[in-house]
Amino acid sequence: MTTATKDLYTIMHERKSVRKYDPSFKMTQAELAEIITEATSAPSSSNLQPWRFIVIQDDATKKELRAIANNQEQIETSSAVIAVLGDAEMYKNVEKIYTQNVVEGHMGEEQKNITISNTHRMYPHAPLEVRQNIASFDAGLISMQLMLIAKEKGFDTVTMGGFDKVKFAERFELPENQFPIVLIAIGKAAAPAFGSSRLPLEDIARFI
């Protein structure tokens, strides 16, 4: 079965958290851009798309990042590290997003204006913590989608939440409205990933 013919379930089960990468394997910027672009079809609260990305391919920068990411080897050996950020001021793009919705024929002008008005009434007045939680949740949706797309294209990934977020924000000079959420190493596996068990359905779900 080739990658192109694999179905979603196969990709889901074949995707593993890979921590050993071939450091000689290099992805192109175009390949990385395509994966992120495809992943942006993920849903988000009010379609405000609060995710932002820093794609780190430079070897010297990855070495710096490793020092603030608990010395995790995959930071340096992977082809790239995709830092997934959240934008707590996601509502500031509402006019751009919903104007484009009208241009693409997804809604009419009246619905656009109602949505923009509702967004301006709600989001700017929500506590910062609430807006950060929204952005973090939406970042989780696009991160999972990104990893599945990467696997479908023949690449391996692992997510990393264990890094110094304060130092990351300082090193990459994030504006106040943006904050780091997770790092995703991506590249080609140099060794098989460990398998992992899952709790049985009766331990995690109630049917009422």
Rank of each mutant, 00 (worst) to 15 (best):
M1R: 04
T2K: 15
T3I: 07
T3P: 12
K6N: 02
D7K: 11
L8A: 06
I11R: 15
H13W: 12
E14D: 06
R15T: 01
R15A: 01
K16T: 00
S17W: 00
V18I: 07
V18S: 04
R19D: 00
D22S: 04
P23C: 03
S24R: 10
S24P: 12
M27Y: 07
M27W: 04
M27T: 08
T28A: 04
Q29D: 12
E31W: 15
E34I: 07
I35P: 00
I35L: 06
I35Y: 06
A42M: 01
P43G: 00
S44N: 13
N47W: 13
L48F: 13
L48V: 07
R52Q: 11
R52A: 01
F53Y: 09
F53K: 03
V55Q: 03
V55T: 01
T61W: 11
K62Y: 09
K63N: 13
L65M: 05
L65I: 04
A67Q: 02
N70H: 12
N71V: 15
N71D: 15
Q74Y: 00
E76I: 06
T77R: 07
S78T: 01
S79Q: 02
A80S: 05
A83S: 10
A83E: 02
V84G: 14
L85I: 12
D87F: 05
E89P: 10
Y91V: 00
Y91Q: 06
Y98C: 07
Y98P: 01
N101P: 05
N101G: 13
V102R: 07
E104L: 12
M107I: 15
E109A: 14
Q111K: 14
K112F: 02
I114G: 08
T115M: 14
I116V: 15
S117H: 08
H120F: 11
A126C: 11
A126S: 15
E129G: 06
E129K: 13
Q132D: 14
D138M: 05
D138W: 03
A139W: 15
M144C: 05
Q145C: 06
L146W: 04
L146H: 12
L148C: 12
K151H: 01
G154L: 09
G154E: 06
T157L: 01
T159E: 05
M160Q: 11
G162M: 10
G162H: 01
G162P: 04
F163K: 02
D164C: 03
D164G: 05
K167P: 02
F168C: 07
R171G: 03
R171H: 05
R171V: 10
F172T: 04
E173G: 03
L174Q: 09
P175Y: 12
P175K: 12
E176P: 14
E176F: 11
N177I: 00
Q178M: 09
Q178Y: 10
F179E: 10
I181R: 13
I181H: 13
V182Q: 13
L183V: 14
I184F: 00
I184V: 08
G187M: 08
K188E: 04
K188M: 14
A190V: 06
A191T: 11
P192Q: 08
A193H: 05
S196W: 10
R198F: 09
L199G: 12
P200N: 07
E202N: 06
E202L: 03
D203T: 09
I204S: 08
I208N: 10
